[in-house]
């Protein structure tokens, strides 16, 4: 068993794509984590499935950008429904998330059986969106991922301080006259885009891991948002590359779970061994609770 594939242009391409996906996921996951919306990401990624399948059914095309537009739209709709259901009924967020997640995914699976009857279904390879198959990335896909990632990073850079205050204290942002709703929509849209990008390599079922784990890991290493975002992006990229590498090396594996495992591993390591916050350093005390101010 050799490592020749490291020199392989196809592998490099795929690794680049996965790294970008991981980086984008880590950066937006930071905001999701801090806004306590980690699980919204999960609901949105599941909600993307019917959009992908519908895009294929309606256009018959298997172009990645097109499928991902469908994914983004339905993920967005899912997020919107979560908000609508929690605001306009007695259903609380946990149940609203579970509802949207499972119903959208179910609709997606039902539509998938329709799509599979199409003669072109096999080449469309819609199944790869379930658990992810990074190896199927084409050069134009990676180019497209790079462009979108660049746009996402640029917008986060431009609206950095607004997103920061939105994440920290939305009530203050509103009192200051910031258009909180518009910013919220923008940030959610960016998250949806990050999820859509991740679908091909990680799949609808596990994309949330690329959002949550790198961000949770990064939080353990620093008390500054600036550093946390960079670290989370780095961890995400690392998980992406490492996951792709491992799944190629082991073979016969969808990439999604392997990337998710790598991200989880980084998170576990950080939770245990990060300086100061690492659980390994805490002397065992009843409950092991560390005083972190009156949070809760």
């Amino acid at each position: 068993m050799g490592f020749v594939f490291l020199m392989d242009p196809t592998f490099r391409l795929v690794a680049t794509g996965s790294a970008l996906i991981g980086a984008v996921g880590g950066v937006l996951g930071t905001f999701a984590l801090l806004r306590r919306q980690s699980l919204l990401g999960d609901a949105m990624s599941h909600a993307a499935l019917p959009g992908i399948v519908l895009a294929f059914l309606l256009t018959g095309s298997r172009d990645l950008p097109l499928l991902l537009v469908g994914a983004s739209l339905s993920a967005w709709l899912g997020a919107l429904l979560v908000v609508l259901i929690t605001h306009r009924s007695r259903i609380r967020p946990d149940a609203a998330l579970g509802l949207v997640l499972s119903v959208f995914f179910g609709i997606g699976m039902a539509l998938l059986t329709v799509a599979q009857r199409r003669p072109t279904a096999a080449q469309a390879g819609l199944e790869r969106f379930l658990f992810g198959q990074a190896a199927l990335m084409l050069p134009q896909d990676v180019e497209w991922i790079a462009r979108t990632a660049a746009l996402i990073f640029l917008l986060i850079f431009l609206f950095w301080k607004e997103f920061k205050v939105l994440a920290f204290d939305p009530a203050f942002a509103a009192a200051m006259g910031l258009p909180v709703m518009a910013l919220d929509i923008l940030l959610t849209t960016l998250t949806v885009l990050a999820i859509a990008l991740g679908l091909q390599a990680v799949g609808v079922v596990l994309t949330s891991a690329v959002l949550v784990a790198p961000a949770a890991a990064a939080r353990q290493w620093t008390n500054r948002l600036e550093r946390m975002v960079v670290l989370a992006g780095g961890f995400g990229a690392l998980a992406g590359v490492l996951g792709t590498l491992l799944s190629t090396w082991i073979g016969r594996l969808p990439t999604g779970p392997v990337i998710a495992l790598c991200a989880s591993g980084i998170a576990l390591f950080s939770l245990l061994f990060a300086p100061r916050r690492g659980l390994a350093w805490t002397v065992k005390s009843p409950g092991g609770k560390r005083r972190a101010g009156p949070s809760g």
Binding site: L34, K164, F168, A171, F172, L225, M228, G293, P294, S295
Partner: peptide, 10 residues
């Protein structure tokens, strides 16, 4: 102020 006191900010 209902903020998250564990927020990474000084």
């Amino acid at each position: 102020t209902a903020v998250d006191w564990d927020f990474p900010a000084t």
